[in-house]
């Protein structure tokens, strides 16, 4: 079972192995030998890859690895198989409308207890100067509205939870 890192929503499988010269990096379509990292401080170091040295700035935040190499910054997420292979969709959890992007709630059009059908507008959010309507992912009853008008939220935040009818 390979290790996996997500960059911009795309998973990249890889594996590191030991060799006499240091580590070997196995990517889907290539093997790079040797690769090494020398720490200079808790946020900087030198990456050696295929004979070239690259200064690196890094910051680690849980499963997120923030890197700055060759003038470019990227965020990679280490995918812990134990977590990602245990999908939450077991049918007993409430249905959730999540924020597709960070923003601010402009208006809420439903209130708890109200029954809604799939596709019905739940709230209007504002992000990037544009308004987006958050719609119900399925039929159900509004259980809770988590963010009030004027409040801001981050990407993937739970905005509205629904429950199945008759639960």
């Amino acid at each position: 079972m390979h290790h996996s890192f997500e960059i911009d929503g795309v998973d990249h499988r890889l594996w590191l192995s030991n060799s006499q010269q240091g580590y070997r990096l196995h990517l889907r379509d290539q093997v790079i030998t040797p690769v090494a990292f020398t720490y200079h401080s808790e946020s900087s170091g030198i990456l050696t890859i295929a004979g070239e040295s690259e200064p690196v700035r890094f910051a680690i935040e849980g499963e997120l690895i923030h890197l700055h190499i060759r003038g470019r910054a990227r965020i990679l997420r280490y995918i812990d198989p134990l977590r990602t292979l245990a999908p939450a969709n077991d049918g007993t959890r409430p249905l959730i409308a999540r924020a597709p992007m960070p923003g601010v709630v402009v208006a809420t059009t439903v209130s708890p207890g109200q029954s809604v059908s799939a596709g019905m507008a739940l709230m209007t959010i504002e992000s990037m100067k544009l308004e987006t309507i958050i719609r119900s992912p399925q039929d159900g009853i509004v259980d809770r509205v988590h963010v009030k008008e004027g409040e801001s939220f981050e990407h993937d935040a739970v905005l509205v939870t629904l429950s199945k009818e008759g639960r």
Partner: peptide
């Protein structure tokens, strides 16, 4: 309890 074979294998490896 594993949700899938791959999940079970991940647990076994752990």
């Amino acid at each position: 309890f594993a949700r899938s074979e791959m999940h079970a294998i991940a647990i076994a490896r752990d």
